[in-house]
Simulated assay, not measured.
Amino acid sequence: MRAVRFAEYGAPSVLKVVETDVPEPGPGQIRVAVRAAGVNPIDVKVRSGSMSGGEPLAAPRSLGSEVAGVVDAVGDGVTDVSAGDAVAGWPIGGGGYADYALMSVYAAKPDALTWEQAAALPVAGEAALRSLRALKPGRGETLLINGASGAVGALATQIAVADGVTVIGTAGPANLDRVRALGATATTHGPGLADRVRDLAPQGVDAVLDAAGHGALPDAIALRGGVDRVVTIADPAAFDLGVPFLSGGPEDQTADVLRTLLEAAAQGRITPPAAQSLGLDQAVRAHELLEGRGSGKIVLIP
C-alpha cells in the first residue's frame, strides 16, 4: 500500500509517498480502506520537529490523525462492525495518510455525510467539545471565541449557539460574514480587541475560548478580569500567563464523542468544516497550504 512518511524533520518537502506493507489488525482493532484523511496543524508541528525537543527522528514516521473509510478487516474481539461498514475516527499511531489504516476508536459514518465531511470532524470536533466542557458556558451567558471561522472555532460556535449561549466570534475581515452565518456576533481580531468586545457586550463576557492564538490572551484576561474561565488550544503563551492550555489526549478520544459529532452533523445541527480535497500524492502541497494559513480544512483522498 501507499503511505506518506518522513525520515527527517523539516519543510513539507520531507514528506514522501512510499510503498509499505498493509497493516494487520490486532485484538480490538479494525483495518479500514481510507477514503479521506484530515490534515491538521498538529501534523505540521510533528513534521517540522517543533515538538521533538531537539531530538533527531529515530525512524521514519507517519502522519494523519483522523480518517473516514470502509472496514476492510477486523481483529479478535471486534463485534460492532464488519467488513464493508463505513466508519470514521482516529487512526492508531497517526497513520491516516495512507491507503489503509488501523483504528480502535471509531463510529459509524452516517449516510448523510460525505467521506470528506466525516474525516474533517474528529480532531476539530473533539477539540471544540473539550473546550466547551472546560468552560461550561450556560444559556444566556456570553462566550468570546477567538478564531470563530476556523475549524475548531466554527464548531464550538455552532454548538454553543444551539445551547442558547450568546457568542462573540473573531475572524479576519474576509470571514466575518461566515461567523455571522454561524449565529455569532462577529468582530475582527487583532489590536483593540478588548475595546471592540466591550462595545458589543457592555455587560461583559462570561468565558473565553482562544482557538486561534495570535496574541489574544492578554485581551481575554483583561475582559475577564483574570484567568478564570479563559482557555486556549493554540497559544503557548498560556503557560506564562496562567491560562489552561487544553492539548487533549487519548482519554478524550472516545466513540461517544465521535457519535455525538457525526450524528449532529448528519442531522444538520452542526456543519462540518468545508474541506479542500487533494490526492495522497499531494501531501506536500497540503502542508504548504496549511502553513500559509487561510486555506481552511484540507483532506487527502487516497
Rank of each mutant, 00 (worst) to 15 (best):
V70Y: 00
L132R: 01
R224D: 13
G192W: 15
I92H: 00
A112E: 15
M1I: 00
I221E: 15
D85A: 11
Y9I: 05
A11D: 12
T260Q: 14
M103V: 04
A162R: 12
D85N: 07
A265E: 12
E66N: 05
L63K: 11
P60T: 10
D210H: 08
G125D: 13
L15S: 12
S131A: 15
A73N: 11
V205H: 04
D72T: 05
A222C: 08
A207Q: 03
Q203H: 11
G38Y: 01
P41F: 02
L262W: 09
L121Q: 00
L144M: 10
S62D: 02
D72F: 08
D80R: 04
V243P: 03
Q117W: 03
Y100K: 00
N40P: 00
P302N: 06
V87F: 01
W115M: 13
V81M: 02
I159N: 04
A238Y: 05
D163M: 06
R224M: 14
K109N: 11
I92Q: 02
A238M: 13
A174P: 01
A86L: 04
A264E: 15
D240F: 11
D199V: 12
G225M: 14
V230L: 14
R229N: 03
K109A: 10
Y106E: 08
G226V: 09
T260R: 11
G296T: 11
R196L: 08
D228H: 12
A216Y: 09
F239Y: 10
V123M: 13
D76R: 06
I270Q: 03
V231I: 08
D252N: 13
P272W: 02
D99E: 06
V74N: 15
S50K: 09
A162Q: 13
K297C: 06
I168G: 03
P272R: 04
D111S: 14
L241E: 12
A36K: 07
P273K: 08
Q158P: 01
V205G: 08
T20N: 02
A222D: 15
I168E: 04
G140D: 07
L280N: 14
L209N: 02
S13G: 15
S295R: 08
L63C: 10
A212D: 07
L261Y: 14
T271R: 05
T170I: 02
L209Q: 04
D206H: 09
A112L: 07
V67E: 01
G95P: 03
G89P: 08
D206C: 09
R139C: 10
A88Y: 03
P202V: 06
L290R: 01
A148N: 05
G192N: 12
Q276S: 10
D72V: 04
S82R: 09
W90E: 09
T260P: 10
G294A: 11
S295E: 14
S295F: 10
V34N: 00
A154Y: 08
V67H: 00
I30F: 12
P91I: 11
G164S: 02
A73S: 08
V67P: 00
V4A: 01
G213W: 06
G225N: 15
V197W: 07
L223Q: 07
